[in-house]
């Protein structure tokens, strides 16, 4: 009632205008990307950037897929799946200890691990590089798993500890009366009950690691061992000035996440926001 008609009218105009404006800002780069992938190299130089491609030509995609692209994909899937499984199990175990067990230094240790969230991973790069060479893991996709799991642990432990603190103490006590030791309580009660927390952790880390660049860049060097973010990098070196082909690689590497996103937007948005909504 006190809202003046003018404010309401501005609102009615401003909301869609601003909403659509940002939509344009978001989508224009993607439009450019996808459109260009259907152009030939020749076309990308000669025609106007914003001109539609002459034909819906998948030749660039075919070109990329005929190369080692699938090897990169396979490596990515393998590294990310193994890492995420390890992250979920290991951080859930630690979180259970922090959330539910009484032992000396519980809080101190938790604080220390959580503080690991702000450590810039770059400081670990050289030592891990040297260590990896030393262990004979250099240039193997498996070299990535250790650093991936370790650097993901602080935030994952933090999220899951917060989550498990919400699980009623009585459930644990009921389980103890039902004859469960600490391990049975964890695996039969806490782990299954942490489903939403676990999926948040899995989604967040899955996306982060799927896109991880620097460790992969430093610890692997051959086409046969590298992951998808490096596919872009390597193709960029190889195709140099074939913009449509390079953008086809970019499109293809982004596709898996976009497809996953199409199926579970809410969950993925929530997962990506993990750790920021609390604390």
């Amino acid at each position: 009632m006190a809202t003046s008609p003018i404010t309401r009218a501005t609102g009615r105009v401003a909301v869609p205008v601003l909403g659509l404006f940002w939509l344009a800002v978001t989508t224009v780069p993607f439009l450019f990307m996808v459109m260009t992938t259907f152009k030939t190299q020749q076309e990308s130089y000669s025609s106007s950037v914003w001109a539609l491609p002459e034909a819906l030509d998948f030749v660039n995609y075919a070109d990329v897929l005929s190369g080692p692209f699938l090897t990169y994909l396979k490596n990515s899937v393998m590294v990310v799946v193994i890492s995420v499984i390890l992250i979920v199990v290991i951080s859930a175990m630690a979180a259970y200890a922090f959330a539910r067990m009484r032992f000396r230094f519980n809080e101190a240790l938790f604080g220390l691990i959580v503080a690991g969230m702000i450590v810039p991973i770059h400081i670990t790069l050289v030592p891990i590089y040297l260590m990896t060479r030393h262990m004979g893991l250099y240039d193997s996709p498996f070299a990535l798993i250790g650093p991936y799991v370790a650097t993901s642990l602080p935030i994952s432990v933090f999220i899951l500890t917060e989550f498990m603190r919400q699980i009623p103490k009585e459930l644990e006590e009921a389980a103890r009366l039902d004859g469960c030791g600490p391990f049975a309580i964890f695996f039969k009660v806490f782990f299954p009950l942490s489903g939403p927390g676990l999926s948040t952790v899995a989604i967040y880390n899955g996306i982060m690691l799927w896109n991880e660049f620097i460790f992969a860049y430093v610890l692997t060097s051959s086409t046969s061992t590298r992951t998808l973010p490096l596919a872009i990098w390597d193709y960029q070196g190889q195709y140099t000035s074939n913009i449509p082909a390079i953008l086809a690689v970019v499109t293809l590497t982004s596709l898996p996440l976009v497809v996953a996103y199409a199926f579970g937007q809410e969950k993925i948005v929530k997962g990506m926001m993990a750790g920021s909504l609390k604390g």
Binding site: W22, L23, T26, T27, P29, F30, F32, M33, I207, W210, N211, E212, F213, L228, P229, L230, I232, W233, Q236, I246, L247, V250, T253, S254, L257, V258, Y261, Q265, I268, V269, M272
Partner: peptide, 16 residues
Amino acid sequence: LYFLPLLMSSVALGVL
């Protein structure tokens, strides 16, 4: 739709 850029890797965005 707004959230889409957050799914992209920095390498992909960098090249794009």
